[in-house]
Nucleic acid binder design. Structure first.
Length: 223
DNA sequence: CAGATCACCTGCTTGC
DNA sequence: TGCAAGCAGGTGATCT
């Protein structure tokens, strides 16, 4: 890959769901950070460095403890990416409502399914469901219009605020400048098992839904 | 076809 | 203190 990328200019940089996409003179570089991936401007290669890019000014270092991230170079946007669902932050209410009706599945796995909606991860799914007062095991297609509408607003609101706060740094996440995010301070349910719900005081519960740890308030979030 | 389980990796925390 | 088990921001394959 290094030969192919040498001397190329980054023409555009954008987000595609959870992917970072760099359009080069020739081809497209797509990056997914997985769970522990980090891109660091001006970083120094260390024991967890899996790749690095020599830019004009700095070294851009890619570290990834768990190896779940991916960097791919292709002539065009890989079909794996173009086949994903609409972006959570670019999905009109009516399209969202239609989409929920079409899928006979529980709401949490639906929101996490990148092929249906792209961009939502485990933290923000739990937070959005709490904000909307919806149980993570509720059937998506059976949500009432008002509740589904509240969920749409909650999803957009949670993602927008989380991006503004530069993400959630629970253990080690940092952005490309090495700065921690602060949205973990605003979490209402994620990572708060046993603590009091900020709205009603009930203990936050942790269950497993769709194979993922799921945090919710049993009193505020109903089926 | 929805849903469960496992696989991929390493590190940190918890409990005995 | 030591060690095993459980858990972690994600995705994808396989089986039921």
């Amino acid at each position: 890959m290094s030969r192919a990328l040498a001397g190329q200019t980054v023409r555009a940089l954008r987000r595609h769901g959870k992917f970072i996409v760099a359009e080069l003179d020739r081809g497209v570089l797509s990056i997914h950070l997985g769970m522990t991936g980090k891109l660091l401007f001006g970083g120094t290669p260390g024991p967890y460095t899996r790749a690095w890019f020599e830019l004009d000014q700095d070294l851009l270092v890619y570290d990834d403890i768990r190896h779940f991230g991916r960097i791919e170079w292709a002539n065009e946007l890989p079909s794996r990416l173009s086949k994903l669902g609409p972006d959570a932050l670019d999905l009109p209410l009516q399209a969202f409502l239609d989409l929920l009706k079409r899928h006979k599945t529980r709401i949490k796995p639906l929101l996490l399914n990148q092929g249906i909606i792209r961009g939502m991860g485990n933290i923000y799914t739990d937070e959005a469901l709490f904000a909307a007062g919806i149980h993570p095991r509720a059937m998506a297609s059976r949500l009432s219009r008002p509740r589904a509408t509240r969920l749409h607003s909650a999803m957009v609101d949670v993602l927008t605020r989380a991006i503004k706060a530069k993400g959630s740094s629970i253990s080690d996440y940092v952005d490309a400048e090495g700065r921690r995010g602060s949205f973990q301070l605003e979490h209402q349910v994620y990572g708060r098992e046993g603590e009091a719900c900020h709205r009603c005081g009930t203990g936050i519960r942790r269950i497993v839904v769709g194979g993922r740890g799921t945090h919710y308030c049993p009193k505020c979030q109903r089926m």
